[in-house]
Amino acid sequence: MNRETDEVRAAIAGELRLMDPDVRGSRSLAQELLDPDFVEVGASGRRWTYEEMLAALPEMDGAAASGPRYEPSHFRGVLLAPGLVHLTYETTLNGNRARRSSLWRRRGADGTWQMYYHQATPVPLDGV
C-alpha cells in the first residue's frame, strides 16, 4: 500500500539523499539524515551502528561521484504512526539487486526526518 503523504515523501527524499555521493562523502550531511540511535543490518548480514556507518559511508559503494550509483525503484511507503514511516524499495548497483526496508522518524522541534533503521537483503540473480 502506498500512501503518498507528506511524511512518506519526506522519507523517500531522505532515502534518495543518502544515496547521493555528496552526502555519502560528508559526515555532517549524513549526520543530518541518520538518527543517533540508527542501526542497519546490511546485505552482508553485518550489523552497523550510527558511528560505524558514519565512519564507513565515504568508502562504501555509491560514494564516489565518478563511480557506480544506486538505482532505486519500487518505493512504497506507509505512515505507521505520527512521525514514523516505513519504506520498502529495491536498488541495483553494478548489476546486484537488493530489497531494502527502512524506518524513518521525525525528530526535534524542527520536525527533521531521520533514518532510524535500515535493512538490505540481496536478491539472487534468479530472484523475482
Rank of each mutant, 00 (worst) to 15 (best):
E4A: 13
E4H: 14
T5H: 01
D6H: 06
D6G: 12
V8L: 02
V8K: 01
R9K: 13
R9T: 07
A10K: 08
A10R: 00
I12H: 07
A13W: 00
A13V: 02
G14C: 00
G14R: 03
E15W: 10
R17M: 02
R17G: 00
L18W: 02
D20G: 06
P21W: 06
D22M: 05
D22S: 07
D22F: 08
V23H: 04
R24P: 01
G25Q: 06
S28L: 01
L29G: 00
L29V: 11
A30R: 02
L33H: 07
L33T: 01
D35C: 07
D37G: 11
D37S: 14
V41F: 09
G42W: 02
G45M: 13
G45A: 13
G45H: 10
R46N: 14
T49G: 05
T49E: 08
E51F: 13
E52R: 09
M53L: 11
A55T: 11
L57E: 00
E59N: 15
E59V: 12
M60S: 14
D61C: 06
G62D: 04
S66F: 14
P68S: 15
P68N: 15
R69P: 04
R69E: 06
Y70C: 04
P72H: 09
S73K: 09
S73T: 14
F75S: 01
R76C: 12
G77K: 08
G77A: 07
V78T: 04
L79H: 03
L80P: 04
L80H: 13
L80T: 10
L80D: 11
G83F: 06
L84P: 07
H86P: 04
T88P: 03
T91Q: 05
T91Y: 01
N94G: 13
G95I: 02
N96T: 13
N96M: 14
R97F: 04
R97W: 05
S101M: 08
S101A: 15
S102H: 07
S102K: 03
W104T: 01
R105T: 00
R105N: 08
R106L: 05
R107C: 12
R107D: 01
G108Q: 03
A109C: 02
T112P: 01
W113F: 07
Q114T: 04
Q114F: 04
M115D: 04
Y116N: 04
Y117K: 01
Y117F: 15
H118V: 12
Q119P: 00
Q119K: 09
T121G: 02
P122N: 14
V123H: 00
P124H: 11
P124V: 13
L125R: 10
G127H: 05
V128F: 12
V128L: 13
V128T: 14
